[in-house]
Design a protein around this nucleic acid. Structure first.
Lengths: 341, 341
DNA sequence: TTGTACGCGTTATCAA
DNA sequence: TTGATAACGCGTACAA
């Protein structure tokens, strides 16, 4: 399995390695006759380009990294698909790693990318990432796009969704349906995304002359069980609440459970809006009205931006905020929505 | 951003590059004193190992590829997580690509891996992959593990699940619950996986003195909508059917929809078993009884095997078939299952 | 178009 | 026993 080298191809074609290299990359001026001879030699020898040698010489590679905390989360899987597609379009290879929220794994991955001369990366940083991590990253001077989790550092490119607007849309929808006592359920501490959604929620209440009630804004882990618990406790204490914006669809599903357990009917005497538009949202009964955040599009945009950075685009850092969309289904009452997706 | 080289570190430590290299990789005999000096110099200079140079020299890399058709499918996302975890354990980097069932993209990815001297790959080949693809792969002589989709070629390692057994378990479960008119819904033509599941289904019927009805074995794309359509058409024609084994959970979810639209109640007057145990299966109402194929475990096993091949394990090709498990929930009636997962 | 120095870590060979 | 020397892997880019 001795691999063919450029030199061998060159010898066979009776030209220099420089010529072969230029033919391979369509650079410089090569006469059609020579090119023909080279192509023939390439074909005959079954030459395989050695990207490693090229990378060494170029001090860079065609490889980019993607760091997530959990590819198993449908949202991130979608995003990955969008990014992957974009990378393939540009002949870039995509490294994938799951941090599982461990700073350690995250750091290891980034170090690994550096050792391999990756030409860029897309990061959804672990929740507890220290500032030093970002500082070090800046010093590396390698294109890095942050995604999904809002980052206060203005020196990084960011692609995410407009959580504030999304929450506004959800809240407005509920208010327009006549609700006045609206809760916000879900999300954990230290979540910038949650902060933004809560912000959109409360500001919309205020705009509509409603006073936010702090006790009606509660946290819940990203699970159905936890959403149900949070809702049960909340609703038993404040039965006057008639609607809720949920931090995530999965939490909303839990809230539905709690409602039923309390003898209330989601979609009839209680209105519910979720966030994410996960597959299940369309499946439950009543189908969940939710804010869709276009995961695939985030991946695509991040890929696009990263590519332009790799190409040398040195405009100031960008923040690409994708507009969310309210997908109206049945969980707030009203007529059944038509087919969606 | 002039990067530090081994030579610079060596100079600073007053040793040769060979010594530094040996210290870095814990090879050869180095006196503690020298090692100390080298480590100090490494630290002081902020040296970053150049994996590319090492790869060039070694004619190989620490990078492996994973080819799927669709990372968006929860099953593959799980598998990816398992593989990714295993790769990180061994300090290997994972390239990800989605073929989207295109042979062309698939071929491009593999070519790309070759150019980059990847040290191995895990493939879930596109459905219409020609034999020539596999033949060429063999010639490359690079460790390659096939996953999930059954492959007749005995020259490749394979990790997958026992589809036949899984379908038998699902079917037996339905028969034990008293069902006699059972359908099989889902899967497409040219699917080896489907063939195995249908095989397990029909053989179990026969073992129980039931006659398979060909018209009750229908295809459906891997989507909820398509599952619903297939089921609607089937059930309107054969209302005597009281249970179904579904090719995938996602199809089962569609079938549930169709049942409701037809005024029937999944879990009460119709029993449903799915395949895959995707997250949604536990969330829908009624929660879906399904055959779990341990996607994460497939990824892990594939990673383990691949690593051993990379290490030089040249035993004959292996076929690792993981046992499926029936996860009983509510969609076949009976008492509510307890907590699962 | 060509000749060739260069990018940088690895390892076989050899010296102390 | 410990460490140095130098050839090597292979594509790239610039001077000629």
């Amino acid at each position: 399995m001795t691999s063919v080298t450029l030199a061998q191809v060159a010898q066979r074609a009776g030209v220099s390695t420089a010529t072969v290299s230029m033919v391979l990359r369509n650079r410089g001026r090569i006469s059609p006759a020579t090119r023909e001879r080279v192509l023939k030699a390439l074909d005959e020898t079954g030459y395989v380009y050695n990207q490693t040698a090229a990378n060494l010489r170029n001090r860079s590679s065609n490889q980019v990294g993607l760091l997530l905390h959990d590819i198993t989360n449908p949202f991130y899987a979608e995003m990955t698909a969008g990014l992957s597609h974009e990378m393939e379009r540009h002949e870039l290879l995509l490294f994938l790693a799951n941090s599982e929220e461990s700073e350690d794994r995250q750091q290891k991955f980034v170090d690994s990318l550096m050792r391999n001369s990756a030409c860029g990366m897309v990061l959804c940083a672990a929740r507890a990432t220290p500032a030093s991590f970002f500082a070090a990253l800046k010093r590396r001077n390698i294109p890095a796009i942050m995604v999904v989790r809002p980052l206060s550092d203005p020196d990084f490119d960011f692609v995410g969704t407009d959580n504030f607007l999304g929450a506004q849309m959800a809240t407005t929808h509920l208010i327009q349906l006549g609700h006045r006592n609206i809760a916000f359920i879900g999300g954990g501490a230290n979540s910038g995304t949650r902060a933004q959604r809560v912000g959109g929620f409360t500001s919309t209440l205020l705009e509509n002359d409603l006073t936010p009630v702090p006790e009606w804004i509660v946290m819940a882990q990203a699970s159905q069980i936890d959403g149900a618990k949070a809702a049960a406790s909340l609703l038993s204490r404040y039965p006057q609440i008639t609607a809720a914006v949920c931090y995530q669809d999965i939490v909303a599903l839990g809230v539905m459970q709690a409602l039923r357990a309390a003898g209330r009917k989601p979609g009839q005497d209680f209105a519910l809006v979720g966030f994410d538009d996960i597959t299940e949202a369309a499946l439950v009964q009543p189908a969940l009205t939710t804010v869709s955040v276009a995961a695939k599009e985030i991946g695509r945009k991040a890929g696009e931006l990263l590519y332009s950075r790799i190409q040398g685009n040195d405009e100031p850092p960008k923040r690409i905020i994708l507009p969310p969309a309210l997908v109206i289904r049945e969980s707030c009452g009203g007529p059944r929505a038509g087919v969606d997706r």
